[in-house]
Design a protein around this nucleic acid. Structure first.
Lengths: 340, 340
DNA sequence: CTGAAAGCGCTAACAG
DNA sequence: CTGTTAGCGCTTTCAG
């Protein structure tokens, strides 16, 4: 717990100027190997590390792209992190992961961070943004929104966007169930007031039912409980339990894999078996779904492609291409063992 | 994508000095309400956000404590995040979560971050540190290590430490199995070269067996595969499968709950049933374990207490108490349904 | 109550 | 090759 070392201290100790120290630690070619070695030895000896605030402040630009995520609990997003990091590295950029807490405003965090770190670009992952181009107007660097939801009736915003069509994919899931002969299909949807991802997926559910001439029964619609974190196993368990007590059905559509895993438990406790008594389909395609018993049939989001093309879009934008693009990727039906 | 606004721009636009703007945005009392309002209106109008690098550089101190974690994949650590954040807020500190990637050195990241952000304190969560007090010598602020492992034979380091006794708790798990009458008990351990958490837990396993006069059979020891991320469901699945093919046993001890979940799958695929044919016990006590079928019996780490006392220790240290303490918490056996 | 000016620690001209 | 110095954007004395 010694006092804070600065570049000056190192310079003084070595009997050189601060710029020489700076050159040494930054691999600047304009320094003699001897001096460099001498300086670096001292740096190491005292474990000197430069102050990044000073560095960031001075540097006109960095080589860093930040990935900003709100809330860590989403396991689907977590599984994309590595991909982003690698893809960015591959493109020669440093990667900065920045978590913003649930209460904070993502847009403002992004703007702050961009200034602070002189970012080259920003990728925002997940969450919901009503007016991206407006909220992010002060974001002075290129950015792309990856699976950022906007509310149902907002026209596609004028920004770089990578996403899936939640309503359509949801439709696909339910259609699949219908094609399998199911008529009474329950859903574990998002929160009742969710007009973003949850709302869209619920919309797809209703559309599929209507398309097949099956009347919508409100008893079959379960909304995630407000008193339990969203999209969690626990919430899925609680809602499935309610559903099971309230009414009958032969298939259950869970708008996220994690909630489906909770539903498994409720179903098992009800003495029912999957898929013999009840079919279950999930959404997301997380790895865990391979290991549930039975393995979870689900709608798999093409996360690798989404990661890759998010980065590609950002690279384009960084390199001066200022036409924003909206890329919607098709998800795929992953048939495993939970539907019959 | 306008140009970067600085405090000067705002000052100029308002026709005031920069210090006045600074006072306005920092709620400094020494400013007339009128001017303040006028300035803030302009700030809002242009969506001005100050540059944190400049701010951090200038500020002599912050009010921030950082939580540093290496690698996000550990679901057990994830479940502690919220607790840390709340506990720190409750103590009046800002919370900064900082993720360092697998390749980087946690100690250096901590030192850098402390300088950059003028941190008040640091909590390091998880990972492994051979010589904490040495590696962190340049960390100029108080810190505590929470569940940071050190290798088997290192004496307890002279730092603030909150942890469980991995070997002892592991012993407890295996002892429980033995008391239930099991003699052939397999283990899914960490990587073969893991001398930290994995090694300790393996040690506890061996000790329990020896204590009961059961000879150790290397065939019963499964090491996590090197080609699959550690402590994952996938790894648990792969190792359990190998174990099942290689030998017979009536109980399986998995040193992490996530790997146990993978083992469930392998066991199911082998046509065996839990706990009738095979008992399984995990380690960690993650929420998911409640929802597996059958619910997972496990050793539950007292994470809430560990979080709270990590923060307490840090508060003490920040307030001048410079006696480092090592707190080892007892874990508890959580009997659910997977052992018989 | 307000503005001018110093300086946080660093990098990058620039001059030697 | 090396040292001196300006200045990144901000907060904070210090005068007014």
């Amino acid at each position: 717990m010694s006092d804070q070392l600065t570049i000056k201290d190192i310079a003084k100790y070595c009997g050189v100027g601060v710029s020489t120290v700076s050159r040494a630690i930054n691999d600047d070619p304009g320094i003699s190997p001897k001096t460099k070695e001498r300086v670096l030895k001292v740096v190491k000896k005292f474990h000197y590390v430069p102050n990044n605030s000073a560095r960031n402040l001075k540097m006109q630009e960095s080589n860093t792209v930040a990935l900003i995520v709100r809330g860590i609990d989403n396991i689907f997003f977590q599984s994309m992190l590595d991909g982003f990091q690698n893809e960015l590295y591959r493109n020669g950029y440093d990667f900065l992961f920045h978590l913003v807490d649930e209460k904070s405003n993502v847009a403002i965090s992004a703007i702050e961070l961009a200034k602070e770190k002189r970012l080259k670009g920003v990728i925002i992952l997940g969450g919901m943004m009503e007016n991206p181009s407006e909220d992010l107007e002060q974001l002075a660097v290129p950015y792309v929104l990856c699976t950022v939801a906007h509310s149902m009736y907002t026209p596609t915003p004028n920004v770089n966007l990578v996403a899936i069509d939640d309503a359509m994919e949801s439709f696909k899931a339910v259609k699949y169930l219908i094609d399998k002969g199911h008529k009474r299909i329950a859903i574990i949807s998002g929160r009742e007031k969710d007009y973003a991802v949850g709302g869209q997926r619920l919309r797809g559910y209703k559309k599929a039912l209507e398309g097949a001439g099956i009347p919508i029964d409100d008893d079959l619609i379960g909304y995630m409980r407000e008193d339990i974190p969203e999209f969690t196993t626990e919430n899925g368990y609680a809602v499935a339990k309610e559903l099971l007590q309230r009414t009958d059905f032969t298939a259950l559509y869970c708008i996220s894999d994690m909630t489906a895993i909770g539903a498994y438990k409720a179903i098992s406790e009800a003495g029912l078996s999957i898929p013999d008594d009840l079919s279950v389909i999930g959404f997301d395609g997380i790895d865990l779904g391979r290991f549930t018993i039975p393995a979870l049939t689900t709608i798999k989001q093409p996360k690798d492609e989404m990661v890759k093309s998010s980065v590609d879009l950002l690279m384009k934008a960084i390199n001066g291409d200022d036409t924003p693009r909206q890329l919607f990727y098709p998800a795929s039906l992953l048939e495993r063992e939970s539907v019959r």
